[in-house]
């Protein structure tokens, strides 16, 4: 149902990846993304894949959950794939299959598609293993230096954590409202695009009303506790960077090095296509 839509939902477990410092995981993801973008050939991507599979294995998250995140962007991937195939500029000696479609075009489009898939899968490992709260804690801590130039880091982190916290709540609420309107004969599945869009009004209006109501209640509750995002606030859960995190970062460093080596010494490796 709708809960499937909130992709990358936290998957509770006690794995080493779950216990890692969120800052380390964020840094690791950034390095991973850089590596995926740097990779110029399938060898580089293979290195990234090994790393990704390792991360999934250590996180003890079912591969199905990770793949589910790709399901959400299948359309996007197909779309870019088709565009890449059609707008591939053929080089000398390329094998034309039909019309504009060449073997090399298909290969390079697959390469870009894999790149997107790897990015999404990597990010979903982070969100599957990290609660929204610790994710924003990590982000806040990483962005802390920006406070020096008066960037409202804490407020931003707060907004983010509230937004993340509210996604499942609103998804649940949407589910409830949809069911209630279905009970009144609402039909969300038939008709053309316009009538389908119109059918959403009875869902969106109550949803907005309830979002505002919740926001008001939350604001009142925070005021009642004299909440003010001052720098003097202490944390209930202190982040701790452990040897495990350092180890993970070293492995990620190796990933980056591996990808760069694959790029530099590409001429030494057998040509795949």
């Amino acid at each position: 149902m709708l809960s499937d839509m909130t992709f990358g939902q936290y998957y509770p477990s006690e794995s080493p990846v779950h216990r890692m410092d969120p800052r380390a995981k964020l840094l690791l993801l950034i390095v991973y993304i850089v590596a995926v973008f740097l990779a110029k050939n399938f060898y580089g991507l293979a290195v990234c894949l090994i790393f990704l599979l390792l991360a999934i294995a250590f996180s003890r998250v079912p591969v199905r959950s990770v793949l589910k995140s790709v399901k959400g962007i299948v359309i996007l991937i197909l779309f870019t794939f088709v565009l890449n195939v059609l707008f591939y500029t053929p080089k000398e000696g390329d094998v034309v299959l039909f019309w504009r479609v060449t073997v090399q075009g298909l290969v390079s489009a697959s390469f870009f598609a894999l790149r997107i898939i790897f990015l999404v899968m990597g990010s979903s490992v982070l969100t599957l293993t990290t609660t929204p709260v610790s994710l924003t804690d990590g982000l806040e801590s990483l962005l802390a230096p920006l406070a020096l130039i008066r960037f409202p880091v804490h407020d931003l982190a707060l907004i983010m954590s509230i937004a993340l916290r509210m996604i499942p709540t609103l998804a649940e609420e949407t589910d409830r409202i949809i069911r209630a309107q279905k009970a009144r004969g609402a039909d969300f599945e038939s008709g053309n695009l316009v009538s389908r869009a119109k059918a959403l009004v009875p869902v969106l209006v109550p949803l907005l009303v309830s979002a505002f109501r919740r926001a008001n209640e939350l604001g009142d509750a925070m005021d009642a506790r004299c909440y003010a995002g001052s720098s003097k606030r202490t944390k209930y859960k202190k982040l701790k960077f452990s040897y495990r995190d350092l180890l993970a970062l070293l492995v990620t460093g190796a990933l980056l090095a591996g990808v760069i080596l694959c790029n530099v010494y590409a001429y030494l490796l057998p040509v795949l296509y």
Binding site: I177, A180, A183, P202, V203
Partner: peptide, 14 residues
Amino acid sequence: IGMVFQYPEYQLFA
């Protein structure tokens, strides 16, 4: 089968 959900007033929209 008329179904009135809990807090049905939260479904008003018009």
